[in-house]
Design a protein around this nucleic acid. Structure first.
Lengths: 366, 366
DNA sequence: ACGTACTTGGAGAGCGCTCTCCAAATCTTG
DNA sequence: CAAGATTTGGAGAGCGCTCTCCAAGTACGT
């Protein structure tokens, strides 16, 4: 830690005395001020600002001039208090897995998954001038406060991401009547909007490819066994393999990190030395698997073929580039945002879901 | 696009009639309601809720019971309106480079840089119960609105990230007196708090290592030539190389993406076939460089040694693992958050900066 | 000319909360 | 036990905005 003694350690010529939020005595102009300058009433100014007709074009102009003159900016907080609209959508991520020094969250945010989702979300939200507020909930207490705030209109709606197995949050949100969209289906049946990938189909694609390639002993490295996205990939893979006559598939599960993929691959290799094909449930773990395989002296794809999942940027950068199942996460996130926005607009919309179809991207690892 | 016809395509048994934000007629309990139930005045309830002394312990209990009974949750919006505190910090990123279909932002969010920063920020903010609101500004108009909202207390402070060369935003923020901290120093001298890495020192480390290794012709792949983080790395590298007797360093610049690194490496290779060492200004570009070098049949590090920058997760996953300059981005982001929080607490704090020292992480690429 | 219908601007009541006053109640102390 | 010092609770004035009402003004038909 160096900060203690470096504060102010690089001096800047222009430094001025520290000033508070608002220089003393300098109050920001309010509607009232604009009204006074324009010589009309507060209501009229409000009408003009919000573009409501029924205002004499002349006054219209007078008001806008007054706005320019005073440098008036509407106070969103005050406005939200009465309109019950904040122009904010909350992105909720859960961290029940996290422990003291915050290891889980660090991992989560650094994962390309998070960035892709945020990117997709923002591509839609920014066009509507909606901002995204990041919320992390872990405890029961946290969930309660979140839902309470949400009911009060702290945010107009919420995108829910990456929940642990049987999180009560989706249910709480629907009960509270808060517009919400989940990315990835809820683990328990709950009447909530969601956008998901046909994970099972994706896994099938991988299975088909590996089998067609002529692999004889095919294993799988899965994610945690209690989250839907992961279980769907497992069941989809198993089902497809079974159809191809592979009644049994060696499986080791990791936690979606590169390290866990490496460990899992070693384990798989130790137990099944003959293995010549492996489906890894995400690219990050596949990267780890590649490392472990190389360590073990296996050539890819000649000795062992590897298929990943996600088609994240890691897939292209891998050596060899990963054959992987494309997960159109940005599109899905964008779609969730659109869905949420329309749900906010029209509260009577019925619960809906959107399922995206994955595709196989063939590169060199299989 | 499949969503048009898949809405509601998976039916859920429990679907209920869509309900608005608040079921009709069901108003959320307010302070007033709690006061009525407790048989005291609104002020007293407010005092109890906010833990102000001067309240009879008996009443204290009565009030809390009433809170429990009514299920009261304070309305943050209303509270913020009067306290001028929102419990929100804005994370501002700029996208002036972005064009129509949003390519820049997509890149930016998917970059591990963004995730690491968010992770570091949240690790501190969540402990104070502060939420992070993502804001993208591009246009002059956008900047004005942002600063306006900020002055109104839309957020208590702002973390500024990744600005293009001569963005006027830092100046606008200081002028407005909004508590702000930049991650990475401002391009123009502005009295604003910031947390930065000694980029020049980092580049020196890379230069020393490459020289010590015995490389004869050493090139550099830099980032855009107009952002401070990038120029500092260039000048630091050049300076150090000069001291070692290398008066001239072939340089090609990219834009911090893997693709651009690949292109830059090809260019460098074409112009300097003898090249046997290269410093790449970030790991993502280094990944691309590795690809290009492998394509050209060069062995790493035997034929060409490569040093990256950032020590992002990509560095470990690369083949061979990258020797790179460690950029403690999470720590820096966490520190910015702390700095901002204390600045918010104490408006009279003087402008300060914190510079972190990078270290060299030696792996196998050099 | 008058009455009716429509347009337009203003007054004012909140949204839910905090916080400053002030009065009442309680406690000191000579 | 009176007079002052101290606690404690309530009334009420906002924070800055929206939006419903209502009155005044304008246009039209008979």
């Amino acid at each position: 830690m160096c900060y203690k003694n470096c504060y102010g350690h690089r001096k800047l010529g222009l430094m001025t005395a520290a000033s508070g939020r608002t220089p003393v005595g300098e109050r920001l102009p309010t509607l009232e001020d604009v009204a006074r300058v324009a010589g009309v009433s507060r209501s009229t100014v409000s009408r003009v600002i919000n573009g409501i007709r029924n205002v004499d074009p002349q006054l219209h102009e007078v008001v806008w001039n007054a706005v320019g003159e005073t440098g008036y900016v509407p106070n969103r907080l005050a406005r939200s208090l009465v309109t019950r609209r904040t122009g904010t959508v909350a992105l909720v991520v859960s961290d029940s897995e996290s422990h003291d020094d915050d290891p889980f969250m660090g991992r989560f945010f650094a994962d390309p998954y998070f960035g892709r989702v945020v990117g997709g979300l923002m591509s839609v939200l920014r066009q509507s001038g909606v901002q995204l507020a990041l919320q992390i909930v872990g405890t029961e207490e946290g969930r309660k406060r979140l839902v309470g705030d949400l009911r009060h209109g702290q945010a107009d709606g919420v995108i829910v991401l990456s929940l642990p197995a049987h999180d009560p949050l989706p249910g709480m949100l629907t009960d509270a009547g808060v517009p919400a969209v989940m990315i990835g289906r809820p683990a328990d049946p709950v009447p909530i909007n969601y956008v998901d990938l046909a994970n099972d189909t994706g896994a099938s694609l991988a299975a088909d490819h590996l089998v067609t390639r002529g692999c004889q002993l095919i294993g799988m490295i899965s994610g945690p066994v209690d989250v839907p996205a992961s279980t769907d990939r497992i069941s989809g893979f198993r089902r497809s393999m079974a159809r191809h006559g592979y009644g049994w598939v060696p499986l080791v599960s990791g936690n979606f990190t590169r390290e866990s993929g490496e460990d899992a691959m070693r384990e798989l290799l130790a137990e099944n030395p003959q293995i010549d094909g492996v489906f890894v449930a995400n690219d990050l773990m596949a990267l780890g698997a590649l490392l472990a395989l190389r360590d073990a002296g296996r050539r890819i794809p000649d000795d062992v073929a590897v298929v990943g999942f996600d088609d994240s940027s890691a897939a292209v950068a891998a050596n060899p580039p990963l054959t992987t199942v494309r997960h159109p996460l940005e599109d899905m996130a964008a779609e969730s945002a659109r869905l949420l926005l329309s749900r906010i607009e029209d509260a009577s919309m019925r619960v809906s879901s959107v399922i995206y179809e994955p595709t196989l991207v063939i590169r060199q690892s299989a």
